[in-house]
Design a protein around this nucleic acid. Structure first.
Lengths: 218, 218
DNA sequence: AACGGGGCTGAGCAGTTGCTTAGGTCCCCG
DNA sequence: CGGGGACCTAAGCAACTGCTCAGCCCCGTT
């Protein structure tokens, strides 16, 4: 907020810290700066309330420069969504694929997934809450990625349930609930809060663990 | 776990029922129609992507008519947010205040809160995800209401933890998690889905129950 | 019948939006 | 040296935005 006339040399570390290293590979440099500016702006104000002038300004460029690197404003959102989703899916997949019991895999998956949503809450907010602004084709492509993360999680629950390690009455519903829990972190997390991303991840992993474990009957 | 059936299927068969009976008291009629139109539009496209012309159109009126009943578009959002929050807080409070063990109170609270978010998902979506578009003063007022619902839930957890009925390591964190779970229902729920609001409420109440209960040590 | 006022509309204003276009600068290649 | 492509800007267009205003209709009161 309040950086309309900010010095161009300014918040490079700021942007990098809050807005992600996931876009490191994007070239040329100007295209990456535009992406980072867009992530920031979309997360702060939402897609529709963000102007192309704002995005270009954050990247230290004129409004017209945006259209050299991206066809439309929506394509900018799509790139963010795509890269962000790919990143989060791969975080989840890696955690769930590791060895150990199904309980281990589940705990690791939740912890890492949550941690990603907290650490990259700026990107995650855009990724999770601005989907509706995507064009139809782009939307379909993203939905496919989301299906993947749901399937990964469901796979762990099914495996644990089949082996008797878990006791889950409604696997699909529980999967959805766990996803909700993790995703919603991006909505409320603030680096100023009292908990670190890792602490939240650990807490949530524990809560989820309890959700799927059979209870001592009172 | 008293049976609190109430009327069997008091669901209004009106198609508009999805858009809420919470605004029944709003008069005159035109003002209410505008509110309902705004809820629909905001839920579909988001506040910033919705035009005053769209809202007025849904209410069957000319764009200018909106300004007879509301000062700005933002005030429309504020009214929706306020009424919606008041409604959801009162649903939560009523459920948590009822008798029974703390486990009963918690289960009832989650079930009713979730059910509200599913049944009134259109309103809930606006209420929960469009806050950022509110003006500063209005925003503060709404945040206060949200604090209330968090406190109600935390109260139940604290009570159950103190009495030994629950075993919660991190009460604030768990409160937040439960709130997340319930609220996020509004984001993904669709009446076309395979689950009824009541089924989701019951499932979630069970999941939360497990979250706060001490585990059988394997 | 005359009045008055709330409810509503058609027309439109000033400002903003996403995006385009014509032209400039730089640097790499021959 | 000169040509060409990548990159960027200033200026601006057409469309749309939230919102206003003069005036019309309708209805209960006098």
């Amino acid at each position: 907020m309040a950086s309309e006339t900010g010095s161009p040399a300014k918040a490079d570390e700021d942007v990098r810290a809050s807005a992600d290293e996931s876009f490191e590979g994007v070239t040329p440099d100007a295209a990456r700066r535009l992406l980072l500016g867009a992530v920031e702006a979309f997360a702060e104000r939402g897609f529709h309330a963000t102007t192309t002038r704002d995005i270009a300004g954050r990247a230290g460029m004129s409004p017209a420069a945006l259209y050299i690197h991206y066809k439309t404003k929506e394509e900018l959102l799509f790139q963010i969504s795509k890269v962000g989703h790919e990143r989060s899916v791969s975080v989840l997949a890696e955690a769930a694929d590791g060895g150990g019991t199904d309980a281990d895999r589940l705990a690791r998956a939740v912890r890492h997934f949550v941690r990603w949503h907290a650490e990259h809450h700026t990107t995650a907010r855009v990724v999770q809450y601005e989907l509706a602004a995507l064009g139809e084709e782009h939307y379909e492509e993203i939905v496919e990625l989301r299906r993947r993360s749901e399937e990964i999680l469901r796979g762990v629950l099914e495996s644990g349930d089949a082996s008797g390690e878990f006791e889950v009455a409604d696997i699909r519903g529980t999967t959805l609930a766990v996803m909700s829990l993790c995703i919603d972190v991006a909505r409320w997390y603030s680096p100023k809060g009292r908990r670190t991303p890792d602490e939240i991840g650990t807490l949530y992993a524990d809560l989820v663990q309890r959700m799927v474990t059979s209870q001592a009957v009172a």
